[in-house]
């Protein structure tokens, strides 16, 4: 046995004789209480996250549908002149609305809204799955 190994063994022996520092007696019970709370909160957080995802997806769908409606209303009733100065919000809507002008079909608006909704939902489900893993 070389010198280093001998010193290692001696120190190991001494270290294992040293009394171990201990937390207070009810430590395990306190940890388990916090663990149970954490488990409850985790479930609640997950539900909140899922709900927030659905709300966000719903808002997306409403925004796209509103843009589509805005385009059709503007075209059919001709009460809006897009070329005149518009507020940034209206400009944003008008830009999205111009997308529908090329497709010129209501199904496009509904389809896009559905795809966005589905995409957002898939993203949320994926995020939740990663979290659970």
């Amino acid at each position: 046995m070389d010198n280093t190994q001998y010193q290692d063994d001696r120190l190991t022996q001494l270290f294992r004789q040293l009394p171990e520092k201990q937390p207070s007696g009810d430590f395990t019970a306190q940890v388990m209480q916090r663990v149970m709370l954490e488990r409850q909160y985790a479930g609640k957080r997950q539900r909140t996250l899922r709900m927030a995802g659905y709300v966000a997806a719903g808002c997306c769908a409403v925004a796209v549908s509103a843009a589509g409606a805005y385009y059709y209303l503007a075209r059919w009733f001709r009460f809006l002149d897009i070329s005149i100065s518009l507020s940034p919000v209206k400009e944003g809507f008008a830009n999205i609305a111009s997308l529908f002008a090329t497709a010129n079909h209501r199904i496009f608006a509904i389809g896009l809204a559905a795809i966005l909704l589905l995409g957002a939902d898939l993203l949320i489900q994926y995020a939740l799955m990663r979290r659970e893993k």
């Binding site: 937390p23 430590f27 395990t28």
Partner: peptide, 21 residues
């Protein structure tokens, strides 16, 4: 099974505490 985690806490509480302290 949360009780199983309790066994892990019991087993490693001293070691974890020693490192932290």
């Amino acid at each position: 099974d949360t009780e199983a985690f309790s066994a892990l806490v019991e087993r490693y509480r001293s070691m974890v505490f020693s490192i932290i302290v």
